[in-house]
């Protein structure tokens, strides 16, 4: 109990950012790209609760001994962002991939929601 409180206290001290996100719709589904530099796979949590997709992560840089910081523009931080996904998305097949500090998520469209050509019959 106490440790979790301490942890949340430490957590609260980190600046929190909403990561830059691209959402692209393609024919097969939605592709979400999120910039999360410095985030390791272990520090990334993706939660899907009904219609809410919640992403939270933490970037931590190793402390270096005997080094003086001349100029700093980024540092340890937390990323958090949530999306509401529509019924069109097939929940079972959501894929996520973290590469080079970018989280890439693929939300496939359900078969019935994919665009379909309607054939016109000449009669």
């Amino acid at each position: 109990m106490t440790t979790s409180e301490v942890r949340s206290d430490i957590k609260g001290k980190l600046p929190r950012f909403s990561p830059n996100t691209d959402i692209i719709e393609k024919e097969d589904g939605f592709h979400i790209y999120m910039d999360m530099p410095g985030v390791d796979r272990e520090d990334l949590i993706i939660d899907l609760k009904e219609n809410d997709l919640e992403i939270s992560a933490r970037a931590q840089y190793p402390r270096m001994e005997g080094v003086s910081n001349v100029h700093l523009e980024f540092g340890d931080c937390e990323y958090s962002r949530s999306f509401t996904i529509s019924d069109v998305v097939e929940r079972e097949n959501i894929k996520a991939n973290l590469k080079n500090g970018v989280l890439e998520m693929f939300l496939p469209k359900a078969e019935k929601a994919k665009p379909r050509k309607i054939e016109i019959q000449a009669g």
Partner: peptide, 29 residues
């Protein structure tokens, strides 16, 4: 950090006696 979004990409610069360390956030590249 106030200049986080001022210049792209953000850089951190540190140094010790014998080296200079430059870090930069360039995700996806």
């Amino acid at each position: 950090i106030s200049q986080r979004r001022n210049a792209y990409p953000p850089v951190n610069i540190s140094e010790d006696k014998s080296r200079i360390y430059v870090y930069s956030e360039i995700p996806g590249v």
